[in-house]
C-alpha cells in the first residue's frame, strides 16, 4: 500500500518537490537549533556546578539572565516565527498565468477530485486520487462538504485545512515521478483515520497521454452514441454487462456517477475511472476484484459508519458481476 506516514525514508523527511523541500528544511533547522540550545544549556549547567569561580559568578549574574534568558530567545524565536510564517505563506501563493488547478473537496470520509479547465470549469471528475505532471506547480483549491478536514501529502507540501464554506489554496509540485500517499490531517469523525488518498506524479508526456485518454473517454461517453459505445465496451464480458445492469437496478446509481451511463449520483465518489485507481475506500485497500467485492458487500465492516450501506443482500455472483464491471471502468 502507499502509506503517507510510515515507510523508509519517512515521507515527512523525504521531500519529492520544492514545496515539501522548504518544509523539510524548516523542520531540520528547528531540530538543529534545538540540539545547539540543548548543548549550550548542558555546558552552562556543567560550568555552573564544576567550572572556575569566575565563570560561576558570571553565570549567576543578572546579565547572564538578560542576555541568555531574554535577548537570545527573543531574537531567535522572532526570527524563526517570521521565517516560518513567510515560508508557509509561499505554499499558498496563487501563481499567475498558465497554472494547473485541481479542486479537492473533503467529505466524510473521502476526497472528491475535480480537474479544472481554463475558465474554472470542471473538465474531469475523480475521487481519492490526484494525478499531476512532474515539474509543474499545481494549485489545489481545497473545500469541504461537511466538517473541517485537512489535506496533507507529506512528500509534496505542507498541510492545509479544508474548511466548510471557504476555499483555501495549497501549492504542490513533484520533481520526480512516483506515487505518494496522502491523509486527512484534521480529526473529522469516526473514520478520520481511514480517510486517505494517493497523489500520482507522471512525467509530463505521460501525464498528457493520461489526460487525453480520460478526456477522450469522457467525450465518447457524452456523445449521442455514448451509451452504445459503453455497451460495446462491456459486451465482451457477459458477467460485466450483467453487473452494469445490477449497478443501475440495486440503487448504486443514486449515489455514484459513471460517465456515459444513467448513473448520476453525487453523494459518493465518482466511479467513472474506479478500475484504474490504486486503492479503494479512500486510500485504505488495494484495488482488485476481491477487495471490490468485499467493499460492496460489506463496507460497513471495513469502514464502520461510512455513508455507503453494506450490500450483504446481494448474492456472491451478483457482487462479482458488479465488481467485474467496475474494475473495467478505467
Amino acid at each position: 500500500m502507499i502509506d503517507a506516514l510510515w515507510g523508509w525514508p519517512p515521507p515527512v523527511l523525504d521531500p519529492a518537490g520544492p514545496y515539501a523541500a522548504k518544509v523539510t528544511t524548516l523542520a531540520w533547522s528547528l531540530f538543529a537549533l534545538g540540539v545547539i540550545v540543548t548543548l549550550v544549556v548542558i555546558a552552562a549547567l556543567w560550568a555552573a556546578i564544576k567550572g572556575p569561580p569566575r565563570v560561576q559568578a558570571m553565570l549567576g549574574g543578572e546579565r547572564a539572565i538578560w542576555i541568555g534568558g531574554v535577548a537570545f530567545p527573543g531574537v531567535v524565536l522572532t526570527a524563526l516565527l517570521i521565517w516560518g510564517l513567510t515560508l508557509t505563506a509561499t505554499l499558498t501563493d496563487p501563481i499567475e498565468g498558465d497554472e494547473m488547478r485541481i479542486r479537492v473537496t473533503g467529505e466524510m470520509w473521502w476526497f472528491r477530485v475535480q480537474y479544472l479547465g481554463d475558465q474554472g470549469r470542471v473538465i474531469m471528475e475523480d475521487a481519492n486520487e490526484i494525478h499531476i505532471p512532474v515539474g509543474r506547480p499545481v494549485v489545489l483549491e481545497l473545500e469541504s462538504a461537511d466538517v473541517i478536514h485537512s489535506f496533507w501529502v507529506p512528500h509534496l507540501s505542507g498541510k492545509k485545512d479544508m474548511i466548510p464554506g471557504r476555499r483555501t489554496l495549497l501549492l504542490v509540485e513533484a520533481d520526480r515521478p512516483g506515487e505518494f500517499g496522502g491523509v486527512c490531517a484534521e480529526y473529522c469523525g469516526a473514520q478520520h483515520a481511514l480517510m486517505g488518498f494517493v497523489a500520482v506524479a507522471h512525467e509530463p508526456a505521460a501525464w498528457n497521454d493520461w489526460r487525453d485518454a480520460r478526456l477522450a473517454r469522457i467525450a465518447a461517453a457524452d456523445g449521442p452514441r455514448g451509451t452504445d459505445l459503453d455497451m460495446a465496451r462491456t459486451a465482451a464480458a457477459g458477467d460485466a454487462a450483467r453487473g452494469r445492469n445490477l449497478f443501475m437496478d440495486v440503487g448504486c446509481a443514486a449515489c455514484h456517477r459513471v460517465a456515459g451511463t444513467d448513473a448520476n449520483g453525487l453523494a459518493g465518489p465518482d466511479l467513472t475511472h474506479v478500475g484504474s485507481r490504486r486503492t479503494l475506500g479512500a486510500g485504505i485497500l488495494p484495488n482488485h476484484l476481491g477487495t471490490m467485492m468485499g467493499w460492496i458487500g460489506d463496507s460497513q465492516s471495513i469502514k464502520p459508519g461510512n455513508r455507503m450501506p453494506s450490500y450483504d443482500m446481494l448474492s456472491a455472483g451478483e457482487l462479482e458481476a458488479i465488481a467485474l464491471w467496475l474494475e473495467q471502468q478505467k
Partner: peptide, 17 residues
Amino acid sequence: AGCGSCHEIPGLDWPKG
C-alpha cells in the same frame, strides 16, 4: 492483498470482513 476485506483473520487488526 486485502484478504481482511472479506475474512476475519487472527493476527490482523483491520479489516475484519
